[in-house]
Nucleic acid binder design. Sequence first.
DNA 1: CTAGGGTTAG
Length: 635
Amino acid sequence: MSSRRKRIYFSSIIGPRIAYCNNWLLKGTSKSPSLLVKVNHPSCFLFVLIRSLSNTTENPTPPQGREPKPEALPKQPCNLGPNHLHSALISFNRMLRMRPLPPISQFNKVLGSILKMGHYVTALSLIQNKLQQFQGIQVNICTFSIAINCYCHLDRVDFGLSLLGTLFKRGYTPDVTTFTTLINGLILQDKTPLAVELFKKLMRTREIEPDVVMYGTIVNALCRTGNTIRAVSLLRIMEEGSCKPNTVVYTTVIDSLCKDRMVDDALKLFSTMDEKGIFPNVVTYTSLIHGLCNFGQWKEATEMFKEMLDSGIAPNVHTYSVLLDACTKEGKMKEAKGVLEVMIQRGVDPDLVTYSTLMDGYCLQGQMDEAIRVLNTMVERGLRPNVFSYNILINGYCKKMKIDEAMHLFQELPRRGLKPDNGTFNAMLWGLFQTGRCGAAQKLFNDMQAAGINLDSCTYGILLDGLCKNGHISEALSLFHRMESNGLFLDIVKYNILIDAFWKDKQLDTARAIFSNLSSKGLQPDVKTYTIMIQGLCEEGLLHEAKELFVKMEQNGCLADDVTYNTIIRGFIGQHKRYEALILVEEMVQRGFSADASNSSLIIDILSTKGQDPALQEVIKKFMSKDSHKMKEIE
DNA sequence: CTAGGGTTAG
């Protein structure tokens, strides 16, 4: 199974996004920000701050009568990577020709920088071919550690381990760094149990005295496997012991707490750092800003950003990408572009992730032309889009039902040397099903299996939903039963799909029965389950029951979301209960949600009749003041 | 200054 990090990744890129417009059913349940906090909508705090950054720091108004100071602009071309490698290689080769030869430490320095640039194969080949074979230079344990690290980053931790054997045989003694490298390599390849075993063995035999980096690596292992609480315990143990945690260890735990939706605990730990005199760095701030943005806590995020700047810590490409992402998630594309401009102005080069984030934002807005434009900009700037970048676009096209364009990109992948992954196939499958091309979907699903692509929970959700939506309920059911007998992915999402399908198929009793039996399966209805039930009831004209369930869901601790409100409001309008509908509209707007497209026009219809009821007039006024542009539409 | 290892974004 994949690590927690990967799960979050997929659920955030493909899962919820696929569902965003048309298929809200499949949307992930627990990872989306709590809707309560959305009440303080204005994410503009951030944008104002970012804007002010560009105005005050980069373009100061020159004081009268003085020359504007020439700025020491660290503007760099963005594709320095290969050039850096080039110069590293030149100095390496120069060193090889020097007599006497420089000490091994000098070679290791250059190798280390090549490793940091990510040119693992190059570093390995330099060690093997240049140092050892021809020159007979005596490598040392640092060189071995570098080589092991290269193997780990190439997903060959097994080679790393055998290199450990080799160095033992040749009489070298691995040190704490060598072992930390290996432990981390195991973690990176989701072999955390092995990593922990190795760590424990080292502790038992007292071969190695662990240092803060080794502890930090283990803390990271715990965090990545969802054991954040245990990571916190280890942090506490370190605090008591002689090996005190440093900024990295704290940051690792803080980030993990944020990802586990425990932002408050993260903030508490953050303040502990202060008390202990451990300084947060750019990673610490970026993790916290990210966590706060994810939960719509714009004000707090802005304060954190300000605090970071006040401490003299410069935002880096990660920080800006987080801010840009926050803008796009709010649909504030102008501001997102603003972030991009500011970062470039301040000499921070946007990278693959930054541009992909921006592309994703445009896709979310349905502005595919803009998204493609970003792709081109990215290529012009020397960045090579990867499979994730393409997944974003394919997904964007599928959402717009432009399946031919999506298919075109899909077929483009191999030509660009890219291999479609789980996310690519899921996006395509969804698109094919939604455009009614079940045969093509079936074929693609076969291809997917033939290619050995991992089928995840999301894949099964797309299949179930696709079959149901295209009228193949019995096939969906047999798939469901196969999943049941294999014990696979039967979460609330899958039940939601079925319940919805049965309502749509007018099998009301079956839908109700599945709903009432959820708890016997150990499942809790989520906001979507309730909304599906409410929608079904509304469509059957059972408004009273729908309203009851609407009340009951919140009593059960499940808050209604924008879709729930829009669903029940549509139900009331459909039964000509205008007054009650508008009361709900008001409640919805107060909670920070707004009417969807179909409801907007219905509500405008009601308002344009300008009902005579004075109570209704009051409600209308409140609604109108929140949405002035809609008022214009009416007049 | 003092090689090599751990933390962040799509």
